[in-house]
Design a binder for these strands. Structure first.
Lengths: 203, 203
DNA sequence: TTTGATATAGACCAGTCTGTATGATAATAT
DNA sequence: ATATTATCATACAGACTGGTCTATATCAAA
């Protein structure tokens, strides 16, 4: 049991946490490949060897950052959905794109961190890709669950379509530097959703 | 007139052309920042100074590659549209996503070269971003024109929505390594288009 | 014939990058 | 008390980067 106690402690380290958060911020804002570990340690205040104590390589740090970010993001989305638990499933599904508004309006928004990571690493065999693919699959899973609860006929198809729209919006808002594109996306999502819902029975 | 003859010649150079095409291929396949000029000159067979003779810097080469690619891509799309000139405008609009099938099925497909370029350069003030934004705007313009010709009520809104869907599909096909996602995208596009068209008058 | 444009070859520079080596020093657990 | 774990400081290695410099070779135009 000694081993598990050790690693528990190691993972709880404040220095490790600081490194992780600093790296996450820098990687997102400036691009993974444009940030050297020197900058990470300088900004985090940690020593070079502390970084390599906690993470065997820069790649390991990147993966840790992705895992960390994935957990936060998905949890936040789940929370946002639970908030409207009182509403009926149809409304909840129709509002699934609403959180995006706040995300893209954030100063320093630079698209989806996961898409960006996958793009910077060209090789699809890179472990980073697997993380990105999984994150996107999880995101789609949320869409699919909402769709199913709302009674959508083919929740799988719709969830993929919503994911495509989601990704495109995150990307294009960044490219055009125009958060208002989200409004078009929300309307599109509503159109897709309404087309996927069975027509309301004659009351 | 001497000057124009000179630059005409310079632009027509075979070496320059080879450099441009080699760089375009390498940049797309492996990522702009992951390809050094050494590799470009090695693969193209050109000399180091020939590269710097035609392009003052790597950044200039990148911009030239983007311009070159943009011209080819947009022209190809226009051509594809013109081919179905005999069909009615509605059909042409509904088939606007069809060329994507072939694009993503290409071996070595790695998403949209322009999105990738913008992602690798984090700074929105980078000249590269302007090229990417313009390309995407031009692409949207094609969608908008088709939508208008088909009698869509709000061609601008629809064209943006189609662009978002387009971008998301290019990206997600790459992430999931699954060209079949295009089918979901095509269905989504059709749904969006049909919702944007005025209902067919009672014949 | 002289000039200028295009192209090649390769040495070279200054700087960046990740990662390692070494050693000292706290803090903590046994 | 002592052994382990965590942290820091710093120097260094080795590879790679974009870009410059110099010298040379064609070849067409003036």
């Amino acid at each position: 049991m000694k081993n598990s106690r050790q690693s528990r402690k190691k993972l709880d380290s404040q220095v490790r946490k600081k490194l992780l958060e600093t790296a996450a911020d820098l990687f997102y804002r400036r691009g993974i490949e444009n940030v050297g570990i020197n900058e990470v340690i300088d900004r985090s205040g940690a020593a070079r060897m502390s970084l390599y104590y906690h993470f065997p390589s820069k790649d390991a740090l990147i993966l840790a950052v992705l895992d960390h970010t994935s957990e936060i993001r998905l949890k936040a989305l789940e929370e946002a959905n639970k908030k409207g638990k009182d509403k009926d499933p149809r409304s909840r599904l129709l509002e699934v794109f609403r959180p995006m508004k706040g995300i893209v309006e954030d100063e320093g928004f630079r698209g989806c961190a996961f898409i960006n990571a996958a793009t910077e690493r060209a090789d699809p065999a890179d472990p980073i890709h697997e993380r990105v693919a999984r994150y996107k699959s999880d995101l789609r899973g949320i869409f699919a669950r909402l769709a199913q609860e709302a009674g959508v006929l083919s929740p799988d198809l719709l969830s993929w379509q919503l994911l495509l729209l989601w990704d495109g919006t995150m990307t294009e808002v960044y490219i055009q530097q125009d958060p208002n594109l989200v409004d078009a996306a929300i309307l599109a999502a509503e159109t897709l959703i309404r087309s996927a819902l069975p027509p309301p029975g004659p009351a």
